[in-house]
Design a protein around this nucleic acid. Structure first.
Lengths: 335, 335
DNA sequence: GGGGGCTGATTGAACGATTGCAGACTAAAC
DNA sequence: GTTTAGTCTGCAATCGTTCAATCAGCCCCC
């Protein structure tokens, strides 16, 4: 039953009109009479016809699809971003092609190729590596709108992102204002946005003239709570005098919190902990985690708006626009 | 620069061969001489050619794309599933089209239409509503492989899922074995898998002959920790004698845990809490949450394998296969 | 030297839609 | 009754590939 898909031709045959009369009627062309149109629409309905976008795209050279490349959908901020982006895109009549790079350049390139061969109208991307962007630029140069969702203002590409440098700065400033001087930084290596956090944090510390008293620990490829736990263990061995910890994600912070609990360290009295992202887990950790609010939804909304604008205008040569959101702090009970 | 995309024809022009020869050479057909092939490949490389899949799909009637429809990507088990599915699909050379229904039938139908008009080779779906599946069946009947990721064994469609009924049964049995008799169930209404949990839980309770002593609370559209907190508040008012709570997601449980903390209720001594899903948050809650392990990754792997098999064999009439994974318990400190 | 078996390359027709242009019909106007 | 304007419809080309069928050589053999 219904093996073959219903085509324009089938409606034409059924109604007696020509194929392109049907095509025009279905797309509400003024060149078709009201009666004819009604007849054709009814028949299309009856046959359960919907247009073959593949064929349409071939002609129109547009797919009504936007590609999204994330580094890791398990990262809660990216999860939220994915949801927000999908919703908004779908509302605007676009579909979403999804791929994850896991921070591997090869995966990213593959996804990019794939998206291009699928004629996506635009690409939203969390880059895998902040230092290699040439392949991204060349895609952009070939005329496909692209927006980076990471804070790389000098990339020469459109950017919409949270300014993590400022976020990290503020977090450290907050710890400093609470009187902490020996601060450890736990950074989950690979993810693109983290590097920037690390830089922001270090700068804030340097500004305060405290370079020597800071311990920074980078966990390669680590953003899980379990790794936060282990990292905290290391911190305690490397510098037992640390009074505050700043982690690059909430998950790491939650692992650190657990370590404190296991080792009977009072938070925030003996050790202050500051996370980053403001995920649900941060709100419901115990004690509730102080953190930096990463406005993933806001970023996503702005990015999609801008993407649709870029697609509509077909504008490919203008200066890239940089939009960076300044994150606020959410102070709870761990600092 | 590079405004127009490179086509087969461009390579043909550049090398002097016919378009068709180029097409065959690029696809490693044995019908083309090694020398010619090398020449063509080199030129393709130089021009940075990649095939237009839209055109290819039009001919081959296959898009090498699988569509995934979730109810809500923010649900941690679905997030994990999305990642696993994407990875595996991409490894197998398929792309992934993504949509979320938010449990709205309209959104689901729209996504389904969209996927079909995009000629996806198959559809993986967390259905929005367990009671309306007719539109899914008709899509399946039109020849598109489809696998339900929810436990609906009687749907007449392929199913790969965790058997939540058994999971919930086991959870309740565990609570019963700990001596609890007054048990409250907090269920986060809409999500498809939850209904089944509720049914399983109720059955386990009925089997134990305890129907009257159970309080079950359904939160419409609620699976957040904040809603778990509120629900727990309600439970305490409705039946203060409750000694154990079973929630349909870990998030709800974590909210409940927070409520206990706020109200100085000792867990598990005064109140036992059992979650569902075994997310990272459960492992790192305090106290660490006892829960049911929802093997989203395992489900995803099996589902993708089966999907690829369905696509490859083109088998559209065979009896639907039902694969249900029996979830195990993860007992931590809240029970 | 003409036919048979190879290999390697080409031609022409799809796939399902859109689009420009030309043609046919209707109705009104002279 | 013929022209003209206006409305509707049809033909054919196109988008970038793939695929079936064909053809041009070349070598070998009888």
């Amino acid at each position: 039953m219904g093996r073959a898909r219903v085509r324009l031709q089938d409606i034409a045959d059924a109604t007696g009109y020509s194929m392109n009369t049907v095509s025009l009627a279905l797309r509400d062309s003024p060149r078709i009479g009201a009666l004819t149109r009604a007849l054709i629409l009814k028949e299309a309905e009856r046959l359960n016809y919907f247009p073959n976008r593949i064929a349409r795209s071939l002609v129109s050279q547009a797919s009504n699809t936007v590609g999204l490349i994330m580094t890791d959908i398990m990262n809660p901020t990216q999860t939220l971003a994915a949801r927000t982006i999908e919703r908004k895109l779908s509302l605007a009549g676009y579909g979403m092609l999804f791929a994850a790079s896991d921070c591997h350049l090869d995966n990213e390139k593959k996804a990019l190729q794939w998206f291009q061969s699928y004629q996506v109208d635009g690409i939203l991307i969390y880059p895998a590596d902040r230092t290699s962007l040439d392949h991204l630029k060349s895609v952009r140069a070939s005329g496909i709108p692209m927006i980076l969702l990471a804070s790389l203002p000098d990339a020469g590409l459109d950017v919409v992102s949270v300014d993590n440098r400022i976020g990290a700065c503020r977090a450290i400033d907050h710890l400093l204002s609470k009187g902490h001087r020996r601060i450890a930084i736990i950074d989950g290596g690979n993810a693109i946005n983290n590097t920037e956090k690390l830089m922001g944090a270090k700068q804030a510390i340097a500004d305060a003239g405290l370079c020597d008293e800071v311990l920074s620990l980078i966990i390669p490829e680590g953003n899980t709570a379990a790794q936060g736990y282990q990292a905290m263990d290391q911190v305690s061995r490397l510098d037992p005098k640390v009074t505050a910890v700043f982690t690059s994600t909430d998950s790491l912070a939650i692992g650190a919190l657990r370590w404190c609990q296991t080792h009977d360290i009072a938070v925030p009295d003996e050790l202050a902990v500051m996370g980053y992202d403001n995920t649900e887990a941060a709100e419901f950790s115990s004690p509730p985690l102080s953190t930096v609010h990463y406005a993933a939804d806001e970023v996503s909304n702005i990015a999609v708006d801008r993407m649709i604008e870029l697609i509509k205008t077909g504008d490919t040569d203008s200066e890239p626009a940089i939009e960076r959101i300044r994150p606020g702090l959410v102070i709870r009970s761990t600092t």
